[in-house]
Amino acid sequence: MGGFTTILGMTSVRTTLRPPRHQFDARVKPWWRAQLALSYGVIVVPLAVLGLLIAPARWWLLGPAILFAVIGLASMALPAWWHRVHRWEVTDTAVYTLTGYFWRTWRVAPMSRIQTVDTTQGPLQRSFGLSTVVVTTASSAGAVKLEGLEQAQAEELAARLTELTDATPGDAT
């Protein structure tokens, strides 16, 4: 099996993981930016408002508000980069994803072990026409999330996955 070729082949052949084929829909970039804007806004806006209202503590409040606003603005560059990094692929036998750059994680969930396929769509996601497909296995660590698929594509994919997993026998443990 593969294990034996390893010993012989370690010096001559290098095995690597190829990246999954697909990128997420380009609309994930504005969606991620909106999420970032919201999470920073929750901090910045109250601080700024309080800073303008409470004169004695003005700079103690406006200072952090400006700091967070700058960090928030800088983080707007991240989604474009994430979009390049995060990838996904569904073959006839497995779901395969790659996430992260500083901490890269490849996940493989075989079709035969998939238990449930869910599509979810938050209010923010809906406004961008995006959906999330969550594929769970019987392992507490095995869930694979495809965040930011185009809505129709997500539904089609979920239907296909459900069909494929229904066709595979076994109790998936």
Binding site: G3, T16, R18, P20, A94, W106, V108
Partner: peptide, 25 residues
């Protein structure tokens, strides 16, 4: 980083195989 992928491939046949590339160094 290379050996472990071969190891995984050997441990559970066909699961990781489609996503592996083997190349000369």
């Amino acid at each position: 980083e290379h050996e472990i992928l071969d190891f995984a491939d050997g441990a559970v046949p066909d699961l990781l195989r489609p996503f592996l590339v083997r190349d000369e160094p």
